[in-house]
Every structure is written in C-alpha cells, then in structure tokens.
C-alpha cells in the first residue's frame, strides 16, 4: 500500500512550465494521432496530388536535389488537410464542457495552448512525415541511398515550415472564428496566397518570400521548378529562402504568443 501511495513524479503544481507543456503535448499528440480522420485526410490529399505528379516528366531527372524538390511541391495539397483536421482542437474542451475543470487545475493556459499546438500539430504532421519516408524509401530503391540526406533536407526546408505555420494558425485562429468559418478561410487563403499567381491581376503573396508553399527554399537550394516566382521574374537567392522560412516560423510564433496573451487576459483565474 505504501508503495502505491508514493508518488514517482512531483504533483502538477510543482512541475516547471516546460514539464507541464511536455505532458500536455504528449496527451494531445496521442489523442490526435489516433484520429482516423487525420490519416484519411492527410494521406488522401497527398495520394490525390501525387497520382498525377507535376510538372510532367520531372521524375525522369538524374538530379536528386531537383527530384526531391519537385516531389515536395507535389505534397503542397496536404497543408489544407492538416489545417482542416486541426481546426476543431481549439474549442474541443469547451464543446465537451471541460473548460472550467481544466481552468481549476494548476497547469495554466500557456502549457495547455503550447502543448496543444506542439502535440496536435506534430500528430497531424506525422502522416506527412510517414508518406515522405515512404517516398524516400521508393526513391532509394530506384536511385540508391544518396537520395536520403537530400530528401530529409528538402522535408525540413520546403515542407515543414509551411506545415508549422498552418498548424499554429489552425489551433489559434479558430478561437476567434470557430472551425467552420476558419476552414473556408484556410482554403481561400491557400488558393489566393499560394496558387493564384500575379498574372491573374490580384494582389497576392504568391511568388514572394511570404508564400507558404516553400517555393523559395526549393528554388534556391534544390533547383526546384518555380511557378509563381517565375511569373514575377524572380530566381530566389539563399537569403530570400532564409527570409521565407523565418517569416513562416515567426508568424507561427506570433499567432501562439498573441493567442496566449488574449486567453490569459480573458481567463477568470
């Protein structure tokens, strides 16, 4: 009995901010990664786009960096799936009537919000990573192990920053809009901000370092095919690629910090 009553970990109130965040992130990760919708949507969208890889003929190239960059471009339908399945996390506790209970715990708003963003975000990105590893396995069988390091670098530089940006927005903005309106806004943003190039005559970040599809890192570091940037007559440099990634990560950070401040001010405790 004595053994049972002895705590192996300190009580929640005594833990550090980081330990509470890790605990929340772990729970959110496990909850989200077990949702069938996450896998069906994210893998489904990757398969839908990769069924007809674009641009035609890039798969026959002998340049591995160009190859993985253009495959990464074909993964750029999945961020809208990531955002769609993350959007309902913001109001989940409220919808289930758990808000008061959670507010009464010593965990606090900050660890819960950051835990949700890190855990649920990582869980929703997991199917993307699994699909990318599967693709690298296929390419390695075709072309040898030289594809692996460049493939991992392409994932980190081209795909991941956009996914982190969308994940942060998707667990914060729905606090303001609700998930339904957010999803429609996300689709509209993705089309306007990343797909509708300057030739349509509408002001857009597409083709600038402030787009989220990783065109600048792909063009600058991996010789990837350019679309919207080419319409602007731009060939991205390494500095512009760093700017593009930094912009997405800073916007993600800003979304979370602002949301934490707003939620803390609103909190009755």
């Amino acid at each position: 009995m004595t053994t049972v009553l002895q705590r192996t970990a300190p009580p929640t109130a005594a833990r550090t901010w980081w330990a509470k965040t890790v605990a929340a992130a772990r729970y959110e990760y496990l909850m989200q990664v077990r949702r069938p919708a996450v896998w069906v949507v994210v893998v489904g969208l990757i398969a839908l786009r990769c069924a007809s890889p674009f641009p035609p003929g890039f798969t026959s190239t002998t340049d591995n960096t160009f190859l993985v960059a253009d495959w990464a471009g074909n993964f750029m339908l999945c961020p809208i799936g990531v955002g769609a399945v993350l959007a309902d996390r913001a109001w989940r506790e409220s919808r289930l009537g758990l808000s008061d209970l959670l507010t009464s715990t010593p965990t606090g708003i900050g660890p819960r919000l950051w835990g949700k963003a890190i855990g649920a975000g990582a869980a929703t990105i997991t199917p993307v990573a699994v699909a990318w590893v599967g693709l690298l396995g296929y390419l390695t069988a075709q072309r040898g192990a030289g594809v692996i390091p460049v493939g991992l670098a392409a994932f980190a530089a081209i795909i991941l920053p956009g996914l982190i940006f969308i994940s942060a927005c998707s667990v914060t903005i729905p606090y303001l809009t609700g998930p339904v309106l957010y999803r429609l806004g996300l689709f509209g943003y993705w089309v306007w901000g990343n797909m509708v190039g300057p030739r349509f005559g509408i002001p857009t970040p597409a083709g600038t370092p402030f787009e989220a599809i990783g065109e600048y890192p792909a063009g600058a570091w991996f010789h990837g095919t350019l679309f919207d940037a080419r319409q602007r007559g731009i060939t991205p440099t390494g500095g512009e690629a760093v700017l593009s990634i930094a912009f997405l990560l800073l916007m993600a950070l800003a979304a979370l910090v602002i949301t934490q401040l707003v939620l803390t001010r609103r909190s009755p405790s």
């Binding site: 919708a37 969208l45 769609a84 399945v85 309902d88």
Partner: peptide, 17 residues
C-alpha cells in the same frame, strides 16, 4: 473535419490538375 479537408483537397486538386 475529414469531409471539409477532403472536399477542400478535391476542389483544389480539380483546379490544379
């Protein structure tokens, strides 16, 4: 969530492809 994600992707895929 799955419905909106998949039809959003289908919509965008029709535009892109």
């Amino acid at each position: 969530a799955a419905a909106s994600g998949l039809i959003g992707g289908l919509w965008l895929a029709q535009y892109l492809m």
